[in-house]
Nucleic acid binder design. Sequence first.
DNA 1: CGCCATTGACTGACTTGTCAATCAGATTAT
DNA 2: ATAATCTGATTGACAAGTCAGTCAATGGCG
Lengths: 214, 214
Amino acid sequence: MPPEPATVLAEANRSPRTQSREVRRQQLIEATISTLAARGFARTTLTEVAKTAGISHGLVLFHFETKEKLLTETLTFMTEEYHQNWQAALAAAPADPAAQLLALIKADFASAITTPARLGAWCAFWGEAQSRPIYQEACGEKDAAYIRQLEVICEELVRQGGYGVDAIIAARILRVVIEGTWLDMMTMQNPYAPTEALRTVMSTAALCFPKHFR
Amino acid sequence: MPPEPATVLAEANRSPRTQSREVRRQQLIEATISTLAARGFARTTLTEVAKTAGISHGLVLFHFETKEKLLTETLTFMTEEYHQNWQAALAAAPADPAAQLLALIKADFASAITTPARLGAWCAFWGEAQSRPIYQEACGEKDAAYIRQLEVICEELVRQGGYGVDAIIAARILRVVIEGTWLDMMTMQNPYAPTEALRTVMSTAALCFPKHFR
DNA sequence: CGCCATTGACTGACTTGTCAATCAGATTAT
DNA sequence: ATAATCTGATTGACAAGTCAGTCAATGGCG
């Protein structure tokens, strides 16, 4: 039977000498994220990941057969985490489309999602995904769900406000502004603060739907 | 004395058996761009670049001492090319800020700049730049110049139209929409056409400066 | 005792970088 | 003109190092 959350937590606090399967795997995925952020995709080695996790590199392959599987599962985990994050935020928001859009945007800048390690790892995967269909497949479907959701909300906003904007275009603009400010936070030499990024996105929302946002 | 352009061109059409220094270096930089796009940063090897150029791998190191130098010079070349492109477009445009913004946007989607190989190579560098300060330095200053130029144009547009938008924010929104549509063209499974990307950016301009764009 | 996590030495493949030998083409000498 | 010479591009074999993946031995825990 699968270990319950309480058991997993207890094991996580135990001596790291031996760990249960699930705890060790999760720990290795986190170590992979950190390594990707710190060293980039090209210089991410199993030895480096193992050192970050404080174990031998042989153990990494014991739990994840190949390096490729470790990376794929790490990407799958991050995709799932991101997906859960915005879906939970959406579920908690009122049925009002303006509130839903706000919730969606805020979720994308939640501190749990935008840690330096997470941002760096996303950047590393983006760089490689272009030439590796496997990585595109891993997060393509989840991305599509996000886009569709954003479009639905924008359509409703356009209907409510009687705006002249194409809802599909507005949704795309909002999405790329979110992605773009993410990129800025990752790649600029002296990046602006997350609050400044959020302000930029909210300004875009105000431009698209002036009656709903200010 | 340095070879004249006519001489360089003549040599480019010659049998590839032996080439002058400059022609070979340029050819290798193009081969590096293609390889980065096709295989990603992590799997770009000197052997692969050499194979693409149709020469032995020893010759790559004869012209570029180390792999690192080949990569930095490739990035420098692409940065310079991009910089020249938008500066030339700006110089050819009328003094009117609306015309200048249009020229700047169109320049970013010029076919010479947005070839699949160029886009893929940019993506590969972006992915690694996060963890390698050297790459950030290579293009950081040129990026800053572009941002400053965009801000100047936006400030003038705001002044002319008496818009309520912050020019700095508007410039940032436009820039990230441009970057974001670039990313879309690179990473989406079924990306939209460059004309659709251009339409998205122009819609953003219309949202920011409705009196100037439609 | 038995089971599984864990280690660390080892292998084979691959990659960067070196270097001596070769070759093409231009220059000079005969 | 033709041969000899020189220069610099080009090659391919090789050295050195790195890394993913294997595996036999070890160790902790029920």
